[in-house]
């Protein structure tokens, strides 16, 4: 097995990993760093359960070669809550508006929503739906997820 070493910022920490060069980012996060938030729902970029942010942009970590995160900043759902455990407005809103059911898509869904709100604090429904269109969910029919994102946007506006 050919190996590579990559260093990057993971949820605020400078980290380094030596992993097989064939590994994707998702596998590195889950197996090397033992992070459980990003999930493999399909492994081929079709469901979005593995969504993380790289330099602030949402990507499918399951088809992102780990070699390419060198020097970049990776944020997973684990990096969202404050150090004191305070939930991010998105996390709060998902719990309050039933944006979560089985929860398997939730980590990825919230990360897609985070990428959107960071770029566009006041999105309309269509923009939210576009941003979440790569995150499949079988439980919710998406309605309460969209509502959760809208509520989170409101919370974040009130704060700032």
């Amino acid at each position: 097995m050919k190996k590579i070493t990559v260093s990057f910022t993971l949820n605020g920490d400078q980290v380094e990993a030596e992993v097989p060069s064939t590994w994707n980012l998702l596998r590195t996060l889950r197996e090397y760093f033992e992070i459980t938030g990003p999930k493999e729902g399909c492994g081929v970029g079709e469901c979005g359960a593995c969504t993380v942010l790289i330099d602030g942009k949402a990507v499918n970590s399951c088809i992102y070669p780990v070699a390419e995160v060198e020097g970049k900043t990776v944020t997973t759902i684990e990096g969202l809550a404050g150090e004191d455990g305070t939930l991010h407005p998105l996390q709060k809103a998902f719990l309050e508006n039933n944006g979560v059911q089985c929860g398997f898509c939730t980590s990825g869904m919230i990360m897609s929503a985070k990428a959107l709100l960071d770029e566009n604090p006041d999105p309309d429904e269509d923009e939210i739906r576009t941003s979440l269109s790569g995150n499949l969910c079988r439980c919710t029919g998406y309605v309460q997820i969209v509502e959760s994102v809208q509520k989170a946007a409101e919370m974040m506006k009130d704060k700032s």
Partner: peptide, 9 residues
Amino acid sequence: VGSVQIRNV
């Protein structure tokens, strides 16, 4: 094309 995640890369 695909989704935002796909289009980003």
